[in-house]
């Protein structure tokens, strides 16, 4: 999923100051799962902002809404009837959702309530960890199902570096050394010979190297 974290309240309060009627829009997808921008978080943030501005003597009028997805035009339409009654949208979606709101509703300012972080997985309740950088040319098949690009601090395709200590990364002992994980998994699979195949210098074009990317499926295109 795409993971995100709420921005500091101070920053949100600052950007809402010029406005009175706010549409606080959550998203029912990834940011719900990582407890950053779902219906519940919309409720909590709405209460917090409401209380703050009320205390300041400048009460807001906050409308809460949570869409199935903010990154699809079909769902975004649900915002349309609200738009002439609000001064600004505070989106609790990831950066994709925020941009789609901005693209669809050109006249209304939209602010991000979250900082979008990474594509990751939940390691345990309350913790999400990075798993993928969308390089566009997956190498997981030759690295035992552990991604060296997103999980090695130096992005080494032929690791580990000399800083791997007891399975941990030199950058931070909370980070597992990706190459230790890769090696352990290759051993478990009986595929240790894969380790000595040097992975070639990566072609970054399928990643960000060739500019912003698009996927076009002719069979589905309208």
């Amino acid at each position: 999923m795409i993971t995100a974290e709420r921005k500091p309240l101070e920053e949100l309060i600052e950007c809402l100051k010029p406005y009175r009627r706010i549409l606080l829009a959550g998203c029912n997808e990834c940011v719900t799962v990582c407890a950053a921008g779902g219906r519940k978080e919309v409720g909590i943030l709405s209460s917090a902002l409401n209380m703050h501005f009320m205390k300041e003597g400048k009460p807001l009028e906050i409308k809460e809404i949570t869409l199935e997805r903010q990154c699809d035009p079909e769902y975004l339409e649900q915002l349309a009837p609200q738009m002439d009654q609000v001064d600004a949208v505070l989106s609790m979606a990831c950066g994709c959702g925020v941009q789609e709101v901005a693209r669809r509703f050109k006249e209304t300012p939209v602010f991000p309530a979250l900082n979008t972080k990474f594509m990751g997985a939940s390691e345990r309740p309350g913790m999400w960890a990075e798993r993928c950088q969308g390089c566009g040319d997956c190498v997981l098949g030759s690295t035992g199902g552990v991604c060296p690009i997103s999980r090695c601090s130096k992005q080494l395709l032929n690791g580990p570096c000399g800083g791997s200590t007891l399975g941990k990364c030199e950058v931070n002992p909370d980070i597992d050394c990706a190459w230790q994980l890769i090696w352990d998994r290759l051993k478990a699979l009986g595929k240790t010979e894969l380790y000595e195949e040097n992975l070639p210098a990566k072609d970054w074009r399928p990643g960000r190297g060739a500019g912003p990317r698009k996927i076009l499926r002719e069979d589905l295109a309208s």
Binding site: K40, G43, I44, S47, A48, N50, M51
Partner: peptide, 11 residues
């Protein structure tokens, strides 16, 4: 008890 219950009570 979730954060939202406490927040709504105060709000």
């Amino acid at each position: 008890v979730d954060a939202i219950h406490i927040m709504k009570a105060l709000e």
